[in-house]
């Protein structure tokens, strides 16, 4: 299938990108790796009239180590995230999850930034970022802003990002705690029916949930002691009962709720 027609621009600098987006009166759409957007365009579910390809802008695809965090360029592919030594050292959960997204070819082209900005509640990556307590660095007409991941998603396939803004990077605290990721799928290439990402961050347990509502979901549970799993399960159960997962051919809402609990308790057991 073929997309509807559009204009294409590939700015060489971030400022050039901003000015194109500003001039496009909200018709411009940022193109990262294209692996969420192009399939939708081919099915003509999405019809942006101007595509702003930010892949030619320098400085968006590196992984940087700072004092107490690491910064991942929004244009880093899932393959890079999966293999980066810095990420493997300081945020092993993220590398572990990135290695399971889509398939090998998709991981080479799909980017962490594109995936997050798509705002899909079924995104494994979003779940992992919730669990690690990521901060998103956004730039645009109103200047640089930073969002906690929990403030980023506003609705189904919607984020707080303004059409003229661009996600530049994801900041992750350096964490050395245990992590785990449990994903229930039909086929290995399907979106998760439900997935649970856990990461010990400081004295808390970061939780990211995949496909349990209109947006990606996450929260932090307090860890009193390593042995205290029943208290955690109880806390989780309470939160899980308020979730509103979708019903589709992969599973009903009710099933997803139950599976969130099962996967959460498995993830607790499998923390490494």
């Amino acid at each position: 299938m073929i997309t509807s027609s559009f204009e294409y621009v590939a700015p060489r600098s971030i400022d050039e990108a901003f000015s194109i987006l500003r001039d496009s009166d909200g018709e411009g759409k940022v193109l990262a790796g294209g692996h969420s957007l192009i399939p939708l365009m081919k099915l003509r579910f999405a019809r942006p009239s101007i595509l702003v390809d930010i892949s030619r802008i320098d400085g968006l695809s590196g992984v940087d180590e700072k004092d107490d965090f690491i910064e991942i360029g929004a244009m880093c592919s899932h393959a890079v995230v999966a293999r980066s030594n810095l990420i493997r050292e300081y945020s092993p959960l993220l590398a572990h999850v990135a290695a399971q997204i889509g398939d090998a070819a998709i991981r080479y082209r799909g980017t962490i930034g594109g995936s997050i900005c798509h705002g899909d509640p079924a995104s494994d990556m979003a779940g992992a970022l919730f669990a690690t307590g990521a901060v998103l660095v956004v730039d645009g007409p109103s200047g640089k802003r930073e969002f906690k991941i929990e403030d980023f998603f506003t609705g189904f396939l919607e984020t707080t990002l303004d059409p003229e803004e661009i996600l530049l990077a994801i900041k992750l605290p350096k964490v050395s705690g245990k992590y785990s990721f449990e994903k229930l799928q039909r086929r290995s290439i399907d979106w998760a029916i439900v997935a649970v990402a856990l990461n010990q961050v400081g004295d808390g347990l970061g939780v990211g949930l995949v496909n349990v509502g209109p947006t990606p979901v996450g929260f932090k549970l307090s860890l009193t002691s390593d042995e205290d799993t029943s208290a955690l399960l109880e806390q989780f159960s309470e939160i899980a009962s308020s979730l509103t997962p979708p019903s589709d051919v992969f599973g009903s809402s009710e099933y997803r709720k139950e599976m969130a609990k099962v996967l959460f308790s498995r993830a607790l057991l499998n923390l490494v």
């Binding site: 294409y8 294209g34 399939p39 081919k42 892949s55 070819a105 080479y108 082209r109 290439i189």
Partner: peptide
């Protein structure tokens, strides 16, 4: 396919597998 699922279009771009149905020719410049 139309959904980046099947891989019949897989080629190597700069040495890595890519689904060429989900890449604009312009992106491969």
């Amino acid at each position: 396919c139309d959904t980046t699922s099947c891989g019949a279009c897989t080629v190597l771009i700069d040495g890595h597998s890519a689904k060429s149905c989900t890449v604009l020719a312009l992106q491969a410049d």
